[in-house]
Amino acid sequence: MTVAALGDSLTQGFGLAPENGFVPVLSRWLDRNGAEVTVINAGVSGDTTAGGLSRVAWTLTPEVDAMIVALGGNDLLRGIDPDVSRANLDGILKAADEADVPVLLVGLDAPSNYGADYEARFEAIFPDLAETHDALLYPSFLAPLTAESDMATALATLMQPDGIHPNAEGVTRIVEGIGPHVLELIARASDEGSGS
C-alpha cells in the first residue's frame, strides 16, 4: 500500500536530517506497528493550500491508495482569508474523492493574533470539510507537542530555534500522536480496495 503525505515544511522535514523528518519517522512507526506501507513525501517547504491544490493531481498517481493532507500553516503565517484556504482544501479533497483515495485531513490551531473571528473561521475548516468529504480528521498536527508540557517548555525542548518547526524529538511525538490515525486511514483504504 502507498500513502502520499501532501503537505508543507512540516511534512517535508525542514531543518532536520533526512532520517528525522516526518515521513521517514512515520514510515518506521508504521513498520513497527505491522503496516507494510510506502509513504511518499509530497511535502514542499513554504507551500500553501493553493500550492497543494496545484500539486494534488500529480500527487494522486495510480499507485497512491491513501493520502494525508497537512496544509494550512503557511496560509496562517500569511494571514490568508480562511474562505480561500477552505476552497483550496475542498478542491484537494474533491480530487481525492474523484480518485477514490481516502484522506486523513490534519488540522491546525490558529493563533489568536488575527482575532477571534479569523481563528474560529480557520479552525472550523478542518472538521467541516472532513464531514463533507467523509475524510478522517486529526485535529492538530502540533498538538502532541503541548500534550505533556506548557507551550514555553515545548518551544524550548521540542521545537527548532525558529519556533515553527519541530526538532527530531518533536517529530517523534507528532508521529506517536498521528500514527494510530494513519493506521485507521490504511484500514479504510484496504477496505475500499477490497470492494467492501
Rank of each mutant, 00 (worst) to 15 (best):
residue 11 T to H: 10
residue 20 N to V: 01
residue 126 F to I: 04
residue 27 S to I: 00
residue 44 V to W: 06
residue 87 A to L: 12
residue 58 W to R: 13
residue 160 Q to A: 02
residue 49 T to P: 07
residue 29 W to M: 11
residue 178 I to E: 04
residue 111 P to N: 05
residue 55 R to S: 08
residue 68 I to K: 09
residue 143 A to D: 14
residue 188 R to W: 01
residue 74 N to R: 04
residue 91 G to C: 10
residue 141 F to K: 07
residue 42 A to N: 05
residue 141 F to E: 09
residue 189 A to Q: 12
residue 35 A to K: 13
residue 96 A to C: 09
residue 112 S to V: 01
residue 151 M to E: 07
residue 119 E to L: 10
residue 10 L to G: 01
residue 139 P to I: 03
residue 163 G to N: 00
residue 76 L to V: 04
residue 54 S to M: 08
residue 28 R to L: 09
residue 121 R to K: 15
residue 72 G to A: 12
residue 80 I to H: 01
residue 119 E to N: 03
residue 35 A to Y: 06
residue 16 L to W: 09
residue 109 D to V: 02
residue 146 T to K: 00
residue 190 S to R: 15
residue 108 L to F: 00
residue 39 V to E: 04
residue 20 N to E: 14
residue 188 R to T: 12
residue 37 V to S: 08
residue 18 P to C: 07
residue 193 G to K: 08
residue 69 V to A: 09
residue 88 N to G: 05
residue 190 S to I: 04
residue 91 G to Y: 05
residue 60 L to N: 05
residue 33 N to V: 03
residue 40 I to D: 10
residue 153 T to N: 00
residue 162 D to Q: 09
residue 18 P to H: 13
residue 102 P to W: 13
residue 156 A to V: 03
residue 45 S to Q: 05
residue 40 I to N: 06
residue 15 G to E: 11
residue 140 S to Q: 06
residue 1 M to Y: 00
residue 37 V to F: 03
residue 179 G to M: 02
residue 141 F to H: 05
residue 40 I to G: 00
residue 99 A to K: 15
residue 50 A to D: 12
residue 82 P to S: 07
residue 137 L to E: 01
residue 164 I to N: 02
residue 141 F to W: 14
residue 25 V to N: 06
residue 141 F to S: 06
residue 75 D to W: 08
residue 160 Q to V: 03
residue 131 E to A: 15
residue 80 I to G: 03
residue 82 P to N: 06
residue 186 I to R: 07
residue 118 Y to R: 10
residue 137 L to D: 01
residue 23 V to E: 11
residue 5 A to L: 07
residue 90 D to G: 05
residue 159 M to F: 15
residue 14 F to Y: 15
residue 151 M to A: 15
residue 78 R to D: 10
residue 149 S to P: 00
residue 126 F to L: 08
residue 188 R to C: 01
residue 104 L to Q: 10
residue 140 S to L: 01
residue 133 H to G: 10
residue 16 L to K: 12
residue 92 I to S: 06
residue 128 D to L: 07
residue 62 P to G: 02
residue 159 M to I: 05
residue 131 E to R: 14
residue 122 F to N: 05
residue 25 V to T: 14
residue 38 T to S: 13
residue 130 A to S: 13
residue 184 E to W: 04
residue 180 P to K: 04
residue 118 Y to D: 13
residue 90 D to R: 15
residue 114 Y to W: 07
residue 160 Q to T: 07
residue 116 A to F: 08
residue 77 L to R: 11
residue 33 N to I: 01
residue 87 A to F: 01
residue 95 A to W: 10
residue 185 L to G: 08
